[in-house]
Nucleic acid binder design. Sequence first.
DNA 1: ACCTGAACACCGTTCAAGT
DNA 2: ACCTGAACACCGTTCAAGT
Lengths: 228, 228
Amino acid sequence: MSSTSSPGRGRPARLDRSGTVDTALELLDSLGLDDLTMRRLADSLGVRAGALYRHFATKRDLLTAMAERMLADIPAPRADGDWEERLAGLARAMRTALLAHRDGARVYAGTHSTGAHTLRFSDTVTGVLREAGFADEDAARALMAVVNFTVGHTLEEQAALRPGDEGTADPEPLRQAVESGTFHHLVAALPTLTSTDFTAHFEFGLRLLVHGLRALRESGTQRDPGGV
Amino acid sequence: MSSTSSPGRGRPARLDRSGTVDTALELLDSLGLDDLTMRRLADSLGVRAGALYRHFATKRDLLTAMAERMLADIPAPRADGDWEERLAGLARAMRTALLAHRDGARVYAGTHSTGAHTLRFSDTVTGVLREAGFADEDAARALMAVVNFTVGHTLEEQAALRPGDEGTADPEPLRQAVESGTFHHLVAALPTLTSTDFTAHFEFGLRLLVHGLRALRESGTQRDPGGV
DNA sequence: ACCTGAACACCGTTCAAGT
DNA sequence: ACCTGAACACCGTTCAAGT
């Protein structure tokens, strides 16, 4: 169970930043974000809540460190494939990293990490686009568009999958409201909207973004055709 | 000020669902989501916290009603313009509705409303796409892609604008980390990434999605060319 | 019928005091 | 130097009792 440094015999020599984040992520997976408290985390570490504040100025600080750690799971992108496939691969890797932890997207969306993993990911995405010939400004905006879509999608995906409270896993109230009303376009869309094939939903949106970027690239700067 | 039923003379006849949501949105604007508590809302209504539970089973229920009310501000779409302009207009209207309240995107993202305004908005977007010739499944997936991007973007926009805690309004730590490291692609993107012209960022992503949909429409079903 | 009072079981955070 | 104990100022939610 105890994974990292100093398994501890007599005095546990307990708290360090990295190990605390590990335990916090395990607790997140078993309890969910709403039940992850500083007190419960302290219990898991064999310590009182106040001791956590020697390593994290605030709970938000802890959550930021957790978000940053989640992005560490993103593997370095394979160098093969064209820019479209590499960009899509990076977006998929981000979704996968967020899905890897319960409420992962909520944790990520609620923080603003500027850690090394976050910067590395942003740098990689920007690099794929710049090397494909996109202007710096377009590369930056494309990064934001892809990340914002991915976070928005995964937020929705994890919200829909959790047993929550009302009408999420159970589409009955929505179905009823739709069929009784005048929302006939929505009725046609319902089978897809209530589908749980979130990968298909994600791929659809991702394809739209990539297509849009391809069109922008072809209409814009067509300098350096061919090349690497 | 008192809008709905029974303005009340002697005894305020105080609580009703609709007025409570109004007051909650006002309180949200002045305090922010983190400081919006059931007790403070009760104070604003001249009532004790327990009384709120006669109208809302839970705080989450209240927040869902607030999210639903926010979408009521979305005006009916103008009938002029082609499907691309109408779709873009609806996405812009949603962003505007979320921006209209402090932490609006966070409130919306944290809930799962199936109220009339949410359904009407979804029905309208789906209708624009179906009438443009998209298959039901594509219309549904396009709705989700546009909404998820819009929510993700606005979440980011409101997070960046709030005076928060660390390195959000102040890009110094990020700038330093970037310049000291080997993230040279990110350095090129920095001026755009730290720009506060969020409308430009939003429009860029929205254009990508619309371009992608146009390509899909032209490659896919080209039945019923011309005509309304 | 609708609200109050009071409680239950918690929170995040701080800080003197111990070791 | 690092952690405990104990407190401060709160939370969301429930429910008997009042009116």
